[in-house]
Computed example of a mutant assay.
Amino acid sequence: MPTDELVRSAGEVGRCDHTWVTVDDLADELQIPKSTIYGWKCRGLGPTWTRVGKHLRARRVHVDAWLDSLNADNSEAAAEATATASSEHVTHTA
C-alpha cells in the first residue's frame, strides 16, 4: 500500500489521490483468509479489482463503498426479518 509520502510525490507529477488496497491489506483489515477474497473475486463478489501487472489492487474508495453496501444490505434484511416476525405474532382474540 503506498505511503502518504509516495502519494504526495506522485501528486507533484500529476494529481493522484487514489489509495490502493492489496489482497493482503483487505484480508488483514477484515481478519479473513486471502483465499476468501480470491473466492469472492472469482464469483464476482467484493470490491472491483484492478490488475497491475501480476498484482491485484482495489481502490480504497471502492472497498469502502462495497463494505457500506454490505452494511446497508444487512440493515434492510434485519428490518424485513423484524417486520415478518412481528406480523407472524399477531394474537387473535375472540
Score class of each variant (00 low, 15 high):
T84W: 10
D68N: 10
V21Q: 12
V52Y: 05
E76D: 13
A77S: 10
I37Y: 01
L70R: 15
A94Q: 11
E80Y: 09
T19F: 06
G44F: 01
L56F: 12
A58Q: 00
L45F: 08
T48G: 10
A79G: 03
A65Y: 00
M1Q: 02
E80I: 02
P47H: 02
V61D: 13
E5L: 08
E12V: 12
P47G: 03
S35M: 08
L30W: 04
G14P: 02
A10C: 06
A27L: 03
D64M: 12
S87V: 10
E12K: 15
Q31N: 11
S9K: 15
H92N: 08
D28W: 04
W40I: 00
H55W: 01
T82Q: 08
S86F: 09
H55F: 05
K41E: 08
S87C: 04
D24P: 05
W20S: 00
A81L: 11
V7M: 05
G11D: 05
L70C: 12
T93L: 14
P33V: 03
A27K: 00
T50R: 15
Q31E: 13
N74A: 11
G53C: 02
R43V: 01
R51K: 14
A77E: 13
G46S: 06
P2R: 13
A58V: 03
V21E: 09
W20A: 04
S69Y: 02
L70A: 00
R8Q: 12
L70E: 08
A78G: 02
L6R: 15
G44P: 02
A72H: 11
T82N: 09
L26G: 02
V52T: 08
A77G: 03
A58I: 00
P33D: 04
G14D: 06
S35A: 08
V52L: 14
L45R: 10
P2K: 14
A58P: 01
A78C: 05
T93V: 12
K54T: 12
R60A: 10
R57D: 00
E29N: 02
H92V: 15
R60L: 11
A81E: 08
V13P: 04
A65G: 07
P47E: 06
R43Y: 02
E88L: 15
E12D: 04
S69A: 13
L45W: 06
E88Q: 11
W40P: 04
D4Q: 12
E5R: 15
Q31S: 13
T84I: 11
H55I: 01
A10L: 13
R57T: 00
T22R: 02
Q31I: 13
I32C: 12
A85Y: 05
A85G: 00
A72N: 09
N74S: 12
R51T: 05
D28Y: 02
H89V: 09
V52S: 14
V61S: 15
R60N: 04
G14C: 09
V63C: 04
P33M: 02
A94P: 04
L6K: 12
T50H: 15
K54D: 14
A81S: 07
D68W: 03
D64C: 08
T36Y: 06
E5S: 08
E5N: 07
K41H: 12
E12G: 08
D4F: 02
H18M: 06
E29R: 12
